[in-house]
């Protein structure tokens, strides 16, 4: 059988779907009547259409709804830590780091001293006098700043970037 033109095939399908105007319908029906090849193709398409109309809905298992509701109930509770809260916390940490850096730069923590442990521990607990521990304020503040920077990265990752990317992935699936 010679292949009939695509345009004509489309018109046959439109006829089957009932989308043609009266004049278009009459024209294509004449074509079907006069051309055995078009008629054959039309019959094939009608046959497919009839068969497809028998497609039926599939039924899931009887426990489908219960399983969905159980999944909803077993979902982990949301942390309530929104991206906005994460940003505020990050901002606070960065302010603290900035303030500590400024104070460090102005030399507030430059004075090195010692901590006399005898003043802290009760005298009756030790037989011999305890040594004095050298204390470097600058070093301690530097350590705190580094810890704060690590904390800031963690906050950025857990409360801002991760939820943001998860939201984007979910949005893409919609």
């Amino acid at each position: 059988m010679n292949k009939i033109p695509q345009l004509l095939e489309n018109q046959l399908l439109e006829l089957i779907d009932g989308n043609l105007s009266a004049s278009e319908k009459e024209k294509i029906e004449q074509e079907i009547e006069h051309s055995p090849e078009v008629k054959k193709r039309y019959n094939q398409l009608v046959e497919i259409d009839r068969a497809l109309k028998t497609i039926q809905l599939e039924q899931p298992s009887k426990t489908f709804t219960q399983i969905v509701m159980a999944k909803l109930n077993s979902q982990p509770l949301q942390t309530g830590f929104s991206i906005k809260n994460g940003l505020l916390l990050l901002f606070g940490v960065l302010i603290a780091v900035g303030a500590a850096t400024v104070l460090l730069a102005t030399g507030v923590f430059d004075t090195a001293g010692t901590i006399d442990l005898n003043n802290i521990v009760a005298p009756n607990l030790t037989k011999e006098p305890l040594p004095s521990v050298p204390f470097n304020g600058k070093l301690v503040v530097n350590g705190i700043i580094i810890l704060n920077i690590v904390l800031a990265f963690l906050i950025l990752d857990r409360t801002i970037l991760k939820p943001w990317f998860n939201r984007r992935i979910n949005d893409m699936q919609f």
């Binding site: 809905l57 599939e58 039924q59 899931p60 489908f64 709804t65 969905v68 509701m69 909803l72």
Partner: peptide, 21 residues
């Protein structure tokens, strides 16, 4: 009223399942 979601599930589960299938 979370339990009401079950009504929506019942209403659309056949179509949802058919599409996935």
């Amino acid at each position: 009223e979370q339990p009401l979601f079950g009504e929506l599930v019942n209403r659309y589960k056949s179509y949802a399942f058919t599409i996935a299938l």
